[in-house]
Design a protein around this nucleic acid. Structure first.
Length: 495
RNA sequence: CGAGGUGUAGCACAGUCCGGUUAGUGUACCUGCUUUGGGAGCAGGGGGCCGCAGGUUCGAAUCCUGCCACCUCGACCA
């Protein structure tokens, strides 16, 4: 029995470990729809916490929420040339609006008479529908800036999917802003990258590199794509968020102009930015271990779980009363606490279950503790246990412990990243590094051409994740072409 | 779309090569008793169009043909 619920270990098979964990920690499961997952309550609770935190950060930076249609008329997609190139291959298309019983009684079929005049595309992203709407909303410089975010689902018909990391349908937020000047728009794109970076590091406890994408890796239709890149435990990079400076491309495509103070007509400047349920994947692959999920306290649906231990009914009453008292104290202090008083499960089972689910702190209290005025406190991240006095300030103790866990898992991830970041000067060194079990982040000189970038990828599978912001400038030569280079860029194998 | 693999109870699998009792094991589920400080023990019980459609045969989970679905690894991508 004890073996029954063990995860595949990371060393055995990393992708399988990931899949096992997602299922066994009750985060999500594959649905009966190809490439689409069901996010289960526990997984969704974590996503909701991400949403709440981000939503507040967006509002604090002046944004408001709105909602645009799921469907986009096909013709909209073709108005921006690069944009359609980027998404055309992965769009789900609605062609009919009615079903009917099959004439031969074999079931339900699409009614051929219900064909749409113009097909509707299920949004892969909302730039086009939003910019066609903005045209009506923007007339004057007084209407700017327009700072809007939407929480939505989008569909990209991916050939190969993995839960949270790449699913055909996924949940995300997309911000779409309009500005009077290029400077303002660039500032906005950079501001939101900052928001994402802070969110990743402070809330998710994932250290990230902030950078700019190369031309080849840029969002379809953008002039610049900013990104945050995290390093997962298997040494592969994961793009955790992007923010795009769109220039006037969409304003021109959808004819969105405004009157300046001196009554000149100008196209507006745009940004868009988004993070998705992929962050769940980043969270899992950054912190979790062979025992299961490890959650940062900031996101844990239950920050503290209390497991009562008892044998007889009189013990049960006393132990539960004390547990409830502790739970109330913690709750009052603003701690998300779960008293696991489920009578049908034994303590050992609960210990294992809550470890699998990544609850940061577990308190166990039994008759022995009750008699001695103690509690047993276990930390999920370090897998340590200690018996401590149960005092009136248990809430302060737990609050401090939660803060410490949040800091420590971030530090641990950061140390891992630093230990797995290398700098190389030759192509041979580069290739050798990529052959290692944990290839990690690799800094190397690059000549700045797409051609070189593509050849390196074709030969090694490594891509340029970004050109880090504030990158140190130094003279060097491209590892591939030998041409001069002024800075190192960040390479990695990526998800 | 290329290469592999898998479809049998909620889940994980055995059985298929070599056709033949009532299709089996673990786990989960239900009932009872004993248990409860690291995924409890015993006893009893329920649950199966063996992926789908044809075919061969006295007889098919097993052999043949066709189809479908899913998974892993590539190419494409957040």
């Amino acid at each position: 029995m004890a073996k029954g619920n063990k995860l595949t270990t990371r060393a055995e098979n990393y992708p399988e470990w990931y899949n096992d964990l997602v299922k066994k920690a009750d985060l999500a499961e594959n649905s009966e729809v190809r490439g689409c997952m069901v996010i289960k309550p526990y997984g969704y609770a974590i996503w909701e916490r991400m949403q709440q935190t981000l939503d507040q950060m967006f509002k604090d930076t002046g944004h408001v929420n709105a909602y645009f249609p799921l469907f986009i008329p096909k013709s909209f997609l073709s108005k921006e040339a690069d944009h359609v190139d980027g998404f055309a291959k992965e769009c789900a298309v609605v062609t009919h609006h009615r079903l009917m019983n099959a004439p031969d009684g074999s079931g339900v079929v699409v009614d051929p008479d219900a064909k749409l005049e113009e097909e509707l595309v299920v949004r892969p992203t909302s730039e086009t529908i939003i910019w066609s709407t903005y045209r009506n909303w923007i007339q004057s410089y007084r209407d700017l800036p327009l700072l809007i975010n939407q929480w939505a689902n989008v569909v990209r018909w991916e050939l190969r999917t993995r839960m949270f990391l790449r699913t055909a349908e996924f949940l995300w937020q997309e911000g779409h802003t309009a500005h009077a000047t290029q400077e303002e728009a660039v500032e906005e794109a950079e501001r939101m990258l900052g928001v994402y970076g802070d969110f990743a590091e402070e809330t998710l406890a994932i250290p990230v590199i902030r950078g700019v994408k190369t031309e080849r890796e840029r969002f379809a239709g953008a002039l610049d794509t900013y990104c945050i890149e995290g390093l997962m435990q298997d040494g592969k990079a994961l793009q955790a968020g992007t923010s795009h400076f769109l220039g006037q491309n969409f304003a021109k495509a959808f004819d969105v102009k405004y009157a300046t103070k001196d009554n000149k007509e100008e196209y507006v400047w745009a940004t868009s930015w988004g993070v998705s349920t992929r962050l769940m994947g980043a969270l899992i692959m950054t912190h979790s271990d062979d025992e299961g999920l490890v959650l940062p306290p900031s996101l844990a649906p239950h920050q503290v779980v209390i497991v009562p231990i008892y044998r007889k009914d009189d013990e049960k009453d006393k132990v539960l009363a004390k547990c409830a008292e502790i739970a109330q104290t913690l709750k009052t202090a603003g701690i998300r606490v779960k008293l696991d008083d489920d009578d049908t499960k034994k303590p050992g089972w609960k210990f294992a279950e809550w470890e699998l689910k990544g609850v940061p702190i577990r308190i166990a209290l039994g008759p022995r503790d009750l008699a001695n005025g103690k509690i047993e406190v276990a930390r999920r991240d370090l897998k340590t246990k200690e018996v401590m006095d149960l005092t009136d300030t248990v809430d302060e103790t737990m609050t401090a412990l939660l803060a410490d866990i949040q800091t420590q898992i971030y530090q641990k991830a950061k140390t891992f990243r630093e230990e797995n970041t290398t700098s190389v000067d030759t192509y041979d060194e580069f290739k050798a590094q990529l052959e290692k079990p944990i290839p990690g982040f690799i800094y190397a000189h690059w000549d700045g051409t797409t051609e070189t970038e593509e050849k390196i990828q074709a030969e090694t599978k490594a891509t340029i994740r970004c050109i880090p912001i504030g990158n140190e400038q130094e003279e060097g030569v491209c590892i591939y072409s030998g041409k001069p280079s002024k800075q190192r860029v960040l390479f990695a194998k990526a998800y």
